[in-house]
Amino acid sequence: MKRRKFLQDLISTATAMAAAPAVEARVVQKTGIRYLRPPGSLDEAEFASRCIRCGQCGEACPNRCIKFFGTENGFKSYGTPYITPREKACILCMKCGDVCPTGAIQSLQREAETILDSVNMGKARVNESLCLSYQGKSCGVCYRACPLPDIAITVGWMEQPHVQDACVGCGLCERSCIQIPQAIRVIPKHSI
């Protein structure tokens, strides 16, 4: 990892020195998408170097929630798997890790303890100005959708959801939220 950092630094310094000083005052922000990696994935930096873009995780996914990047997330992510939880969330079946040949997605047992210990796709966050329960209309759908209820998410007064640290970020709450747009969303591990 360190060797690569050195190589990259060397090259970026060289290009910076070669390029004329840019006269650009304000850079317009770049758009991206919020995405989750499949359950058991390595950290973002390591993932791109492990994943060989074979697509077997997507093929094995019984929920068809795994999609693949084109060039929209930079060339480094080309062909790597991701999940958009609002469209289709992960059901934590762990089949993707079983087929992954390189261990970019770790093979994990489908047991609550293993999942709680080893899966970290992100963490859900409630938007209280959109959430029905916080607006006085008792809902609780996210709590019912959660595969780890009372561990990852608890509900209080009027079924107001409270996300706990144990949340693995599967996104089933976000997928099921009846509010449009969703009042609960998973903030990916790599964005926190």
Binding site: R4, L7, Q8, A45, A48, I52, R53, C54, F75, K76
Partner: peptide
């Protein structure tokens, strides 16, 4: 691939 840390062959190799 060493520099970028990304398996670039996957993008240009027709069988893949």
């Amino acid at each position: 691939s060493m520099i970028t840390g990304s398996v670039l062959f996957a993008a240009i190799y027709p069988p893949a």
